[in-house]
């Protein structure tokens, strides 16, 4: 149920964003979704790719600092209140979200969100107990067409 996400340290200056993406492209790695956390001086590029080990190697060889983080993909109803209901589950189960970002793929009126929890394993357990649909790696990449 746990997905691997790659985080790349970037300085906040022109040109730093294209280079890692180009390196991944040259290696034939497709980025499924990404998010950029930025401050005035630095940023963190977060990526979900199918072959994360290969992508990690490509980035390390290119000289980037990369960290692998456990994240969780969750199905969210694409209707008013879909997110609100999900967050209410988090609150009830005392799950802490560090950050989140969406996938662009949508299926049967459901969207996919990616969450970084402070304790991913505990979160998955609590979410399943609350009947929240957590999407595993195999299912995820099937949906994404890989």
């Amino acid at each position: 149920m746990i997905l691997k996400q790659l985080s790349v340290f970037l300085e906040n200056k022109p040109g730093t964003l294209s280079a890692p993406c180009r390196a991944l492209a040259d290696a034939g790695v497709n980025i499924q979704t990404f998010a950029l956390a930025d401050t005035q001086k630095f940023g963190i590029l977060r990526l979900v790719v199918h072959e994360w080990e290969k992508a990690r190697r490509v980035l390390l060889e290119g000289g980037w600092t990369v960290k692998v983080t456990d994240v969780v993909a969750i199905e969210v109803s694409d209707t008013p209140g879909g997110l609100a209901s999900l967050f209410e589950v988090f609150e009830r189960a005392s799950i802490n979200v560090e950050y989140m970002y969406p996938f662009t793929a949508k299926q049967e009126g459901k969207g996919l969100m990616l969450f970084r929890f402070d304790d991913p394993d505990a979160a998955v357990k609590a979410l399943q107990a609350n009947k929240v649909s957590v999407v595993g790696t195999v299912e995820l990449f099937k949906r994404l067409g890989n």
Partner: peptide, 13 residues
């Protein structure tokens, strides 16, 4: 920022 220092969150950095 080396791998040892890199934390995935802005707050950590």
């Amino acid at each position: 920022v080396t791998a040892e220092l890199f934390s995935d969150t802005v707050g950590g950095l």
